[in-house]
């Protein structure tokens, strides 16, 4: 749980930090839509470049963003491979003859086993995996002697490659943008921004202030609950619950021994909290003044205009092209 990087605020100081959370939220949505609408290869690269420069000028550590991307690497990689293998539209742009011989199969298995045995010691796991995959293809391509079972061809089509590219870059841009938002905005400000942005929903009888209150209390209690869960685990471990081992039946009991105290304590907590809030004159749905106010600066107007211009440009070029 210590490695959760997505969604964490990192204190810092740059124009991204001084922007109004409303601006950031709306700009995020506008730019995401824009990223989805881009059709040209060049525009996509420019967009990626612009978002990256946003990171650099916003003094956000690229490493942090990379850490945010890392858990999703597998997903990105998988969609990429999937598109390349199964999307067979457009022209063939790459053809690789493969030979399934006794020797090549044996060699491929050997490579896979070697990868499996050594992967724990290698630092760049994804890269190592990629190299292994390439190596296996190479084995099938180059070793065409020995007893031949069958022949095959590995083909990459234009559509597949370009779709794979677009999906991947889009995902990267979206993740980068949302990481920028969460890194530079305190959860409380984000919550307040969300409340204000969603305010129009009040017309359809959705009380955005109450939703914001719920989110704010959730934010407040998440660290407390994690701490509590940890203590309950230790207390049950003291009674011989071995969370590392156990059969399926034991696992069920283990989980119950964790969940029941969690629920009981949480109910007690929410009961106490409701009392404390009520005693301090909180009445759901009643108007309240607010300590935090959002101030719209010129920077926000500029950011807003730029975001909408970017979207307009993408739409126009899509129509024109």
């Amino acid at each position: 749980m210590k490695n959760i990087v997505i969604g964490r605020y990192v204190p810092g100081n740059s124009f991204l930090y001084s922007m109004d959370p409303r601006t950031k939220l709306i700009a995020l949505i506008v730019l995401m839509v824009a990223a989805f609408l881009i059709q040209s290869f060049a525009h996509m690269l420019v967009a990626l470049l612009l978002v990256t420069s946003l990171l650099i000028f916003g003094k956000i550590s690229v490493k942090r963003v990379y850490l945010g991307l890392r858990p999703l690497m597998f997903l990105l990689f998988f969609t990429f491979i999937f598109q390349i293998l199964f999307n067979q539209e457009g022209d063939e742009i790459f053809v690789l003859p493969l030979h399934y011989t006794a020797l090549s199969i044996f060699a491929a298995v050997a490579v896979a086993v070697f990868w499996f045995a050594t992967k724990k010691r290698v630092r760049f796991k994804l890269l190592y995996f990629l190299i292994t995959v390439v190596a296996i293809f190479a084995v099938f391509h180059f070793i065409d002697f020995g007893f031949l079972f069958a022949r095959g061809t590995f083909r990459v089509f234009e559509e597949g490659l370009s779709t794979a590219f677009f999906i991947m870059v889009r995902l990267i841009i979206i993740i980068m943008l949302s990481t920028i938002l969460t890194i530079t905005t305190k959860p409380t400000d984000l919550n307040l921004g969300l409340e204000r942005v969603l305010k129009p929903l009040g017309i359809v009888r959705i009380n955005t202030e109450e939703i914001a209150m719920i989110i704010s209390i959730a934010l407040r209690y998440i660290p407390t609950l994690l701490d509590e869960a940890n203590k309950i685990m230790l207390a049950q471990a003291s009674r011989g619950v071995d969370f590392q081992e156990g059969k399926l039946k034991d696992k069920v009991v283990q989980i119950i021994s964790l969940l029941v105290p969690m629920f009981i304590i949480s109910f007690q907590r929410s009961d106490d909290l409701a009392n404390a809030m009520e005693a301090r004159s909180f009445v759901p749905g009643q108007p309240r003044t607010r300590l935090h106010v959002l101030t719209w600066k010129r920077l926000d107007t500029v950011a807003m205009v730029v975001s909408f211009l970017a979207l307009t440009f993408v739409i126009v070029s899509r129509v024109v092209l």
Binding site: E228, I232, A235, S238, S257, V260, I265
Partner: peptide, 30 residues
């Protein structure tokens, strides 16, 4: 952990069974 029994500050951290009897028996059964 069987030889050194540790009781946490808040009993709420460990009580979870339906009856007191089952809860007390939970540790030994483990």
């Amino acid at each position: 952990r069987q030889k050194v029994g540790l009781v946490f500050q808040f009993p709420e951290y460990q009580l979870f069974e339906e009856t007191v009897g089952n809860d007390i028996a939970f540790g030994p059964k483990n």
